[in-house]
């Protein structure tokens, strides 16, 4: 009978998946995030375009949903509520987070481009829905604004980014050679 040395017996630690690949992914991910936030900070036109684009897509939605919608520079009034559209109101943060994850993940360039294009579009739609929901909450339940705002801005943005990334990894694993 062959004696198995204690060090090679299966224990929870040596049954665990290896940590290495995840650390490589994590390092690439954080690097891409830093790069993304640096680009946003150092190229002010990115932020300006995002704010202008958000306003351009938000206004038709608000006009369809509410009466008396007005815009003064970056401020939007609808449903008796006035909001100023700043950088955090745009989908930029979600776009940086998702783009970092897709770029850091090992896959082919065409699949990455598909993921980026589809992900950016979904994040943009989510952002418009988020601002519209915030206007409704601010008008009807102002006491719930803080909770709704942090829930939609941080929790749901991360959830949408993670959800999109998971969907995209499924696409990548289907397209990967066996």
């Amino acid at each position: 009978m062959l004696a198995v040395p204690a060090s090679s017996r299966p224990t929870p630690d040596n049954l665990a998946p290896p940590r290495g690949p995840h650390v490589v992914f994590l390092v690439r991910l954080v690097s891409f995030w830093c790069l993304g936030f640096l680009i946003v900070a150092l190229v002010p036109s990115v932020e300006r375009v995002a704010i202008r684009g958000t306003l351009a897509t938000l206004l038709p939605v608000l006009r369809a949903a509410f009466a008396d919608v007005r815009q003064v520079v970056n401020q939007v009034s609808a449903n008796g509520v006035t909001l100023e559209i700043v950088s955090d109101c745009t989908p930029l943060v979600g776009i940086v987070l998702l783009s970092g994850a897709i770029l850091a993940y090992p896959s082919s360039a065409p699949l990455k481009l598909v993921g980026l294009a589809a992900g950016w579009a979904v994040l943009w739609i989510y952002d418009i829905a988020r601002i519209t929901a915030l206007i409704v909450v601010l008008a009807r339940w102002p006491g719930a604004f803080d909770l709704t705002h942090i829930y939609l801005w941080q929790t749901c943005t991360i959830a949408v980014v993670v959800g999109l990334f998971l969907l995209w990894t499924r696409l990548v694993s289907r397209g990967a050679p066996a």
Binding site: A16, P18, G20, P21, H22, F25, Y105, L166, R170, S173
Partner: peptide, 14 residues
């Protein structure tokens, strides 16, 4: 993260 099946274990696999 290493405990989730959708993380890039297969592609970065050593």
């Amino acid at each position: 993260g290493r405990w989730t099946p959708w993380m890039p274990t297969a592609r970065f696999k050593r």
